[in-house]
Design a protein around this nucleic acid. Structure first.
Lengths: 133, 133
DNA sequence: CAGGTAACTTGCATTATGCAAGCGACTGAA
DNA sequence: TTCAGTCGCTTGCATAATGCAAGTTACCTG
């Protein structure tokens, strides 16, 4: 008999942000391929503010979905922007932090922060972003 | 008889980047709501480089789709980042350029440009972005 | 060992993107 | 004065990314 159901493709579930190839050699385009979406820089922001656990990122006011958060952390890990380390407060639990390379994203974050503060009404610096350099 | 096909919803075609409300009062989040996607800042880059016609943006190496380009230009117009003006080279044709507010995005563009150039291999400053301040 | 929490994964509906074709206004050559 | 190009978009439709909610697994904690 051999039913076709056995032939169905494995399908790696959802892809979510796969493409690793560059659209062009432009530094702006390439950087946007990495951080050009609504969530990545917010995760970096939270990391810059000292957050380190999955649940802390979830608690941010924007309300990131857990699958997206998981995906972004994995991508940032791949690209050497963040690294895992054993949490000192809660042993046997891992945490995330910016790598040296990751910290170099702060000027981008800062310029975006400043622009928003100046040109979008209703925004406010509710956090200590300024001091975390 | 009265067939149900007459009852089908009007459906305003495609939405594409609608949400105008802020996810949070964070300046970073709000700015990303505006420019946090793969295309908007590339259009701004092209504008900063002096491009002004629809077809010029299309010709950029990243190959933006016309519907996306159209949508992004409209959004940037709405937000006062770009403005239309009658093209002086080709009369009876309109062109786009950055407004004063739009030009204030350059520091963001610059920080992204610099980061990409330094941390993403294979990128190169193929254009005169540096001089357009 | 029951219940709780942290950190994810999965499914599935909804939105955004990519791609190609179409369309109206204008232009320039025949 | 047609008539074949652009130019600047719009439309349709397939595919990919996101949002939302409900698991799942490992590790506590009482």
């Amino acid at each position: 008999m051999q039913v076709s159901v056995f032939m169905t493709s494995p399908k790696p579930k959802v892809s979510v942000m796969k493409p690793e190839s560059h659209r062009s050699p432009c530094p702006v385009a390439c950087t946007l391929d990495l951080i050009g979406d609504k969530w990545t820089l917010l995760v970096v922001r939270d990391l810059a503010l000292g957050k380190s656990h999955f649940s802390e990122f979830q608690k941010s006011p924007e309300g990131i979905a857990t699958n997206i958060l998981s995906n972004r952390l994995a991508r940032l890990l791949e690209h050497g922007i963040v690294e895992k380390y054993p949490s000192e407060t809660i042993p046997s639990r891992e945490a995330y932090r910016l790598t040296k390379k990751g910290k170099t994203l702060k000027p981008i974050l800062k310029s975006i922060f400043n622009w928003g503060l100046k040109y979008i009404e209703g925004t406010k610096p509710f956090d200590e972003m300024e001091q975390t350099s």
